[in-house]
């Protein structure tokens, strides 16, 4: 069951890439059925970042993530084909899937071409991490301090 929830989270991440995702608050329960709320929240941070920042840049980061980490095996043939399509402008981000990106190990140059402009990945990544901390650090902390003095 855990692996299926893992897949469901990835399916949600893929929907973020294609802009077909439900708002995080609608799927939080479903995507944390295995108790891995933190993992679900990482993807929710991407969904929220897409709402707040430049959505195409966030999607570009996701493309990079999927192409590098969705599969441990490098698939040169798949990469060659995808790179050719990106270079010729025959593929758009809304057509991509994790399966299609897995094992392709795209470079940032390809991501920039897909996004249509250059951006600083380090800076954008930091922005998402900050957003994650901003959104969920308060959620994990207790709402009421352990010791409260009312002064009387």
């Amino acid at each position: 069951m855990e692996i299926r929830i893992e897949l469901a989270r990835l399916a949600y991440a893929e929907n973020i890439l294609r802009c077909t995702n439900e708002p995080p608050e609608m799927v939080e329960d479903l995507l944390s059925l295995d108790g891995e709320l933190e993992k679900a929240r990482r993807w929710f941070a991407f969904a929220e970042a897409k709402r707040r920042f430049d959505p195409n840049i966030v999607r570009g980061l996701l493309v990079y993530l999927f192409s590098h980490y969705a599969s441990t095996e490098f698939d040169p043939r798949k990469r060659e084909q995808l790179v050719r399509e990106i270079t010729e402008g025959r593929v758009r981000m809304r057509e991509l899937t994790i399966e299609r990106l897995a094992g392709t190990r795209l470079s940032w140059e390809h991501i920039f071409r897909l996004v249509g402009r250059q951006f600083n990945p380090t800076r954008e990544k930091e922005k998402i991490k900050e957003l994650y901390a901003q959104l969920y650090s308060s959620a994990s902390a207790p709402a009421i301090p352990p010791e409260v003095s009312y002064g009387h």
Partner: peptide, 30 residues
């Protein structure tokens, strides 16, 4: 400003986003 000079852009090996790799751990053939 979204135009970066080559010095400002990351080297392909520099920025790997490896801290997100754990989101894919556990994927296996079913």
């Amino acid at each position: 400003d979204t135009n970066y000079s080559p010095q400002q852009l990351p080297d392909p090996d520099h920025e790997q986003l490896a801290e997100f790799a754990e989101l894919f751990v556990g994927l296996k053939q079913l």
